[in-house]
Nucleic acid binder design. Structure first.
Lengths: 295, 295
DNA sequence: ACCTTTATGCTCATGTTGAGCATAATATAG
DNA sequence: CTATATTATGCTCAACATGAGCATAAAGGT
């Protein structure tokens, strides 16, 4: 069985991060590596274009997973080589889903997300109390505190996978919960796809801090508020407006188009475009965004 | 053909980063994923222990490579899932090689390394001039400037892979040079192993900036200068001594043992140990080292 | 003429970083 | 025994980055 190539294709539409899915949101585009593929990445591109009609822009490898061996099962294992891809949505394309539909607790810009985390923390504290030994209970509590930012640690938006794995272990998601048990809100997916999506979210959130990949998700021209909302949507965290602008300005990665955004409320905002030329010519010192990651 | 698991096992010995090799330094430990392996990582551990007798400590996945398809060759491709592993050398173990034996230009702490880069840059400028079009020449020059830190950009120690790939394209390494042509100093390896090693070096250099992985390479107790020399050896860059100490101190990741280093010249140095307990208990805000990455 | 809304400029306290001066505590050469 | 070399360690300073917030500008709507 050849390894499978699997893509997490991300776009942001109306300030919501979206992921391209198949089969009613249960699967991600994927297909086996074939002899004719010139490289892993070309194989991936072919599969995604074939299955979704969507061409890929920025692509990077994420992680390679193998499923657990089955006793008495086949000798061959399913190996998945996963990729993160960034694009823009096109009107009318089907299969796009909001990524917070799968991970509602990851959206800390919305009050519902924050309330959900409160609920989750209570459930996880119960779970921690059910550990067999006292040391085990303490270890579980510490893990909950770290991944969910308790005890003044603060929410770390990059711990998407760690949080998902914790919820899996605590049997709070349908993938691991016993049949009929209460589970958290949020769509699940087939096989390991939700884990792959979590990996992609974590990588993208980490990456926008130090590489200007956010512009892969922006249209040709945009206002500064639009850019900020996009970053906030990806990070799932609000930001300080003036500081955001100061930072973006000093990066010198965008320039004014000279136009002004149409149909806005309030004072009209200037439009900007990404200076794609500078990408090669300069080292990008740090596109570190004012996404305060607390101590 | 199942995917192959391949390990880059790193240790630092006498302030030199070492890599564990087989076959006279031509190969890295590796073996196919088998049905009995519980996971990719267990498979890797089994292979490395079997081939080298060395147990693995900290392990992380690096990247998955596929070799290019051969026209009329077999349908199946070789897929390599590579890992970075960190340990301590043990006296008398065979197969350890200095990683700068393979990449002499990556050691910018030594005058020879800096001189070699000067020579490489001249060769690459010739190569840039041989591009067919004027635009192609300019693109090549810009790439050389970026990867080797010309025009005041400064040396970026994380660009190990980019530099190796550039040298490959310019046919300055034995892997790509025509037979008999002059090539750069530095050992080469079989297959794609040198590329895998470059990937590992880049990852480790990046990682020591924001995670305390350097302590995986240290003995139980060490002086601050020993720690600094280890970081410098990995990064291939010198550091400011007082600032290094200030940073390490404020991280609060190490504590004094109360003892003093034996057989040193100069004023005796206090010994420290890594506080392994804090690893789980605290978020490591930033183990960012004073490795000035220039603008 | 006001109010709401968004855009934009500016200040200020605090923290971080790069550089270097100064002094302390050893061993060894003479 | 003193000078010198060598490493350890404490401390200062300027430049810059960061987080927070005040103030004002420019639109549309009541």
């Amino acid at each position: 069985m050849p390894p499978e190539l699997i893509a997490v294709l991300i776009a942001v539409s109306d300030d919501r991060p979206m992921v391209l899915t198949l089969e009613g949101g249960r699967l991600l585009p994927s297909g086996p590596l074939e002899a004719g593929h010139r490289s892993l990445q070309t194989g991936l591109r072919l599969w995604v274009e074939h299955q979704t009609g969507h061409a890929l822009g920025h692509v990077e490898q994420l992680y390679t997973f193998a499923d657990a061996p089955v006793d008495g099962g086949p000798d061959e294992r399913r190996v998945m080589i996963s990729y993160l891809a960034l694009t823009r949505t096109r009107r009318g394309e089907r299969g796009w889903r909001g990524w917070y539909d799968y991970f509602p607790w990851e959206d800390q810009t919305a009050p519902e997300g924050r309330a959900l985390v409160q609920r989750i923390v209570r459930l996880l504290e119960d779970w921690a109390g059910r550990a067999p030994s006292a040391a085990g209970q303490e270890a579980r509590r510490q893990r909950v505190a770290l991944t969910f930012g308790l005890d003044g640690l603060g929410w770390d938006d990059e711990l998407v996978l760690q949080r998902y794995e914790l919820l899996w272990e605590a049997a709070l998601v349908p993938e691991s919960a016993p049949p009929g048990a209460a589970v958290l809100p949020g769509l699940s997916m087939a096989r390991d796809e939700r884990r792959v999506l979590a990996t992609a979210m974590a990588r993208l959130r980490a990456k926008i801090r130090y590489r200007p990949v956010i512009y892969e998700l922006m249209p040709d021209s945009f206002t500064l508020l639009h850019l900020q909302r996009t970053v906030e949507a990806v990070a799932g965290q609000p930001m300080h407006k003036q500081n955001f602008r100061r930072l973006v300005a000093q990066q010198d990665l965008i320039e004014e188009t000279g136009e002004v955004a149409p149909d806005t409320r309030g004072r009209p905002a200037r439009l900007f475009r990404f200076r794609r030329e500078v990408m090669g010519a300069r080292r990008i010192a740090g596109s570190k965004l004012p996404l305060a990651r607390p101590v």
